[in-house]
């Protein structure tokens, strides 16, 4: 039989753990209760004070002093909360007050910390305040991807030439998190990045090019035409797909011609994307090539070709009707399905 002494010892240890856990659970609850009340009370004061300072635009020294005396956590909560609701002059005033109460300086110190979690925190505070601080720009080269991603988020509101070129470098970032944040930020910068991005696409390939092509597709500037044509000949399938999408967005004659060639690409994803892009351009001259793709071995290509024919209007409908009477069962079936779609359906 298991020794009673052994059982007693084990049980006493367990009871000790249980008592510790329960004690911590209830004590933490008690602490939370008072901490929440304190935070709520002080944040309300800070919020009201900040709202007055930001909306009136008057420098009230006493009010700023009162804000400065509030605990750090309360300041951060109140400033970040209000930063989401103000823009333009309001944001400038908020930044001024943040500077006066010492929040900006504390955030800068955090950005210089040796611990990535603190740098992240610092970058987040400065991002939310839209503070044009070169320290955050440095964080675009931070070793931790979360910090780089946060710096990229900050950069979206600081579209200088230096920031844009630093951001473009990050399109090749091995960390998806940073890459996504950079793509997002470049998109938010809008037309300003078009020129540098087109140059970037001329000189880069692979993953960086694919990330850039996706941004370029959303920006849809004519200057992306030449790099899109170049990348549509890339070896990497994902790059060719992204290039085909971009060609559809650029939508000029050269793009259409290249897209018609891509309808014969070895990879079905590229053929499908080319068909989709031609449909998006409503390029009726591609009718016969698209109709030929109704016989494609890949379902996705047949579908995109059918929908593209429908998108180009009367000539396309004619091709679809003809395909329903053709000898290819798959082409006829897809054509019929496309013709059966209601007028408003997108497939």
């Amino acid at each position: 039989m298991v020794s009673e002494n052994l059982l007693t010892i084990v049980m006493l240890i367990e009871i000790g753990l249980l008592v510790l856990a329960v004690g911590l659970f209830f004590l933490h609850g008690l602490w939370l209760f008072f901490a929440d009340r304190r935070l709520h009370r002080l944040t309300t004061v800070a919020r009201e004070s900040l709202a007055r300072l930001v909306t009136r635009g008057l420098v009230n020294v006493e009010e700023i002093q009162a804000l400065r005396e509030l605990p750090n956590d309360v300041q951060v909560v109140a400033f970040l909360e209000i930063s989401q609701t103000v823009t333009g002059t309001g944001k400038e005033r908020l930044r001024f007050v943040a500077q006066q109460v010492g929040l900006v300086d504390r955030a800068r110190k955090l950005c210089e910390s040796g611990r990535w979690t603190r740098r992240l925190r610092g970058a987040r505070i400065l991002s939310r305040l839209d503070a044009a601080d070169p320290l955050v720009q440095k964080l675009l080269a931070d070793p931790h991807p979360a910090v780089r991603a946060q710096a990229a988020e900050w950069a979206a509101a600081q579209p200088s030439a230096a920031v844009i070129s630093a951001m473009l470098v990050l399109l090749a970032d091995p960390a998806t998190q940073a890459r996504f944040a950079v793509q997002n930020a470049l998109l938010r910068m809008g037309g300003l990045v078009a020129g540098p991005l087109a140059e970037f696409l001329e000189t880069h390939s692979g993953r960086a090019a694919e990330a850039g092509l996706r941004v370029a597709e959303s920006l849809a500037e004519a200057s992306f035409g030449p790099p899109a044509l170049r990348h549509s000949r890339a070896e990497d399938v994902d790059v060719r797909v992204a290039a085909a999408n971009l060609l559809g967005a650029v939508a000029d004659a050269a793009a259409a011609e290249r897209l018609m060639q891509l309808l014969s690409d070895d990879e079905s994803r590229v053929r499908a994307t080319a068909a989709k892009s031609l449909g998006r351009m409503q390029y009726w001259q591609a009718g016969s090539q698209l109709a030929a793709r109704l016989r494609d071995s890949a379902w996705r290509v047949r579908k995109e070709a059918g929908l593209a024919l429908r998108a180009i209007g009367a000539p396309g409908i004619l091709f679809l009707r003809r395909a329903t009477k053709g000898d290819d069962r798959f082409a006829a079936d897809m054509a019929q399905q496309v013709l059966d779609l209601p007028a408003t359906a997108t497939g």
Partner: peptide
């Protein structure tokens, strides 16, 4: 009966303590 109770409490005790720690995780 004493042994049975001791055995039962020992067997389930650590699990209960772990559950209590989970509640702390939730709280934190």
């Amino acid at each position: 009966w004493n042994f049975a109770l001791l055995f039962y409490l020992t067997a389930y005790g650590l699990g209960t303590a772990l559950t209590a720690f989970t509640l702390i995780l939730e709280d934190l």
